[in-house]
């Protein structure tokens, strides 16, 4: 211990060297660098191509600006944006019952048996692993072009994601009230209905709003593969080289996405505030 100007000091002991940890650190760094090198080569990233393509980009932007805001373009654009919104809404709402059932079966504490738990988890993983665009391509083939296959595709993928998120919210719930009702002789379903679900309702509703937000954005992409909505118009205008119309559609999309995003955020904030009251 030394004392400098009345302040007590103690020398810091040297850090113990751990050669093994350092070796592992270097190995991880080497793997990360190697992965990026392979990825760079495989994806054909070329700054030269980007510079050469500059003229093409400029032409593209020159034709797109100013956007065509005439009613003959804007009107159908707004109509199609509403269709996109309805696809996102139904894709979310219609997946609620199946998501709830699968979430209850895929949460420890509510799953009636281990094999049911594993089976429900497997179904959710599968639905989550298949992208909604792939579901959309399948359903477009099955039921034809239009918004309906879009709704079906969103329901399938959203059940996978929302079911998992809900199952995790159920597992994180306070186990006390369910324990109290079990001790009062309530059965599994009664415990879920009277203790578990009422406790986690705000979390479930918040996740639902978050998924609504994501699904509206997804339904845009679904339009690109023929499942209706404003994505379909964007695809068409690119194919017909009408870039000024495309920009109009994109601006409408931005307004729609921001509006839904705001709505979702406000509702989720209100829900979490109500929880602490």
């Amino acid at each position: 211990m030394t004392t400098v100007d009345g302040v007590r000091r103690l020398p810091v002991p040297p850090k113990p060297r751990r050669p093994k940890a350092m070796l592992i650190g270097w190995a991880i760094a080497a793997v990360v660098v190697a992965a990026h090198t392979v990825a760079w080569e495989t994806t054909g990233i070329s700054l030269g191509a980007l510079v050469d393509g500059w003229r093409g980009m400029a032409d593209f932007l020159g034709e797109a600006i100013p956007p065509d805001l005439s009613w003959k373009v804007l009107g159908p654009s707004l109509d199609a944006a509403l269709v996109t919104l309805w696809i996102g809404l139904l894709g979310t709402t219609l997946s609620v019952p199946i998501s709830l059932l699968l979430a209850l079966l895929a949460a420890r504490g509510t799953a009636p048996a281990e094999w049911v738990y594993q089976a429900a988890r497997a179904v959710l993983s599968f639905l989550r692993a298949v992208p909604d665009v792939v579901f959309a391509l399948i359903f477009v083939t099955a039921v034809g072009l239009g918004p309906f296959p879009g709704v079906l595709a969103l329901v399938c993928h959203n059940v996978g994601v929302m079911g998992k998120l809900w199952a995790e919210a159920l597992e994180d719930a306070d186990p006390g009230p369910p324990q109290a009702l079990r001790s009062a002789g309530a059965n599994r379903v009664q415990v879920a209905a009277h203790a578990l679900l009422p406790s986690v309702l705000p979390q479930l509703a918040g996740l639902l709003m978050y998924r609504f937000d994501v699904n509206v954005r997804s339904s845009l992409v679904l339009g690109l593969v023929g499942a209706g909505g404003i994505g379909f118009l964007i695809n068409q205008s690119i194919k017909l080289f009408k870039f000024d119309e495309m920009l109009t559609h994109i601006l409408v999309v931005v307004v729609l996405v921001v509006a839904v995003d705001r709505l979702s955020a406000v509702v989720r904030r209100r829900l979490s505030e109500g929880d602490h009251a």
Binding site: G176, P177, Q179, A180, L181, A186, H194, P198, P202, D275
Partner: peptide
């Protein structure tokens, strides 16, 4: 019937619903 140290009511439900839950058995 059990009474717990940490009470274990469902905080978001009404007082009446919580009491009714005692009859579930």
């Amino acid at each position: 019937a059990l009474v717990f140290q940490r009470i274990h009511l469902v905080r978001r439900r009404s007082v009446l619903d919580n009491v009714c839950a005692g009859a579930l058995g």
